[in-house]
Design a protein around this nucleic acid. Structure first.
Length: 274
DNA sequence: AAACAGGCCTAAA
DNA sequence: TTTAGGCCTGTT
């Protein structure tokens, strides 16, 4: 077994909500209560109790990668206070209470883009199984702790899989969209540059230039991977929320720098009512 | 059986 | 510029 790093569990941090709120698709909770998944080409195992969070990494790896990935570098008291200032409707209080503990992960840009391309017109179990199939077929295989895992395929690997190769995995009409995204990335589209140098609006415009990427997929990529916490993805659940609590209209530009985190609270809350 | 699932594209007004 | 159908596949 590898080293286990123990860190103090901060307020507003709950692995169950983080991995179950719909932002990521490659983590599963084991019988032992440990969340396991592959990100950035490595296996992460994470568990928690009241006081601590436990991670299968060294202090160095934590500082370099997982601290940021898990968004343990952010102060959610500050973020939550900002959200409360920007939302005047009562539902936000219920949503923040229900969703307390969610953190917006910093996922891999390319993987996130593809994941949300795959998500369209699809349900979550199927999204997960499609992503898993794409990784197993075209991702780099590696071994960790005696078990086999697959990284998410690179844009080059996705391209060489070809539309037919992806369709064989039952991705359907999304296969062409994945190829389109891969072409953009292989031909110079630098997602990290969108993260580091572009505004939200510039990033949205750039991503929507990819065939098969519209406002929803683009804003999910901006929010879940490219550090644009102001991005506010509107899917069917958020549409429902807007109709139900906001009189059918919501001026997204007035919601502040953390609108996307509020969106995730609202999304989680509305789904919890099912 | 028909509708729907964490949208987007295309064609047509 | 906005609005309806259609789309791969699977589940209810």
């Amino acid at each position: 077994m590898s080293d286990i790093l123990e860190i103090k569990r901060p307020p507003h941090f709950d692995l169950d909500k983080i991995f179950d709120c719909g932002q990521s698709f490659r983590f599963e909770k084991g019988e032992d209560g440990v969340w396991e998944g592959v990100a950035y080409g490595r296996v992460l195992r994470a568990s928690q109790d009241e006081e601590h969070v436990y991670l299968n990494c060294t202090k160095d790896e934590y500082e370099k990668l997982w601290r940021r990935y898990l968004c343990l570098d952010a102060d959610y008291d500050v973020i939550n206070a900002d959200i409360k200032e920007h939302f005047r409707y009562g539902v936000i209080d219920d949503a923040m209470k229900a969703g307390d503990g969610i953190r917006i992960l910093r996922q891999e840009p390319w993987e996130t883009l593809c994941s949300f391309i795959i998500s369209q017109n699809n349900n979550i179990p199927r999204i997960k199984s499609l992503i898993s199939a794409v990784c197993a077929s075209y991702g780099e295989k590696f071994t960790y702790d005696g078990k086999t895992y697959y990284a998410f395929p690179t844009p080059e690997a996705m391209l060489s899989a070809g539309e037919e190769g992806l369709k064989a995995l039952k991705t359907g009409f999304r296969a062409g969209y994945l190829i389109s995204a891969a072409e953009h990335c292989v031909n110079g589209l630098d997602l990290c540059r969108i993260r580091d140098e572009y505004t939200y609006d510039e990033g949205l415009k750039e991503l929507c230039g990819i065939k098969g990427v519209g406002p929803k997929v683009a804003s999910c990529t901006l929010l879940f991977a490219l550090d644009k916490t102001g991005a506010f993805p509107v899917d069917v659940w958020i549409k429902k929320t807007i109709d139900k609590y906001f009189g059918g209209h919501l001026d997204i530009s007035s919601l502040g720098d953390y609108a996307g985190i509020a969106q995730q609270y609202l999304f989680y809350y509305e789904r919890s009512l099912r």
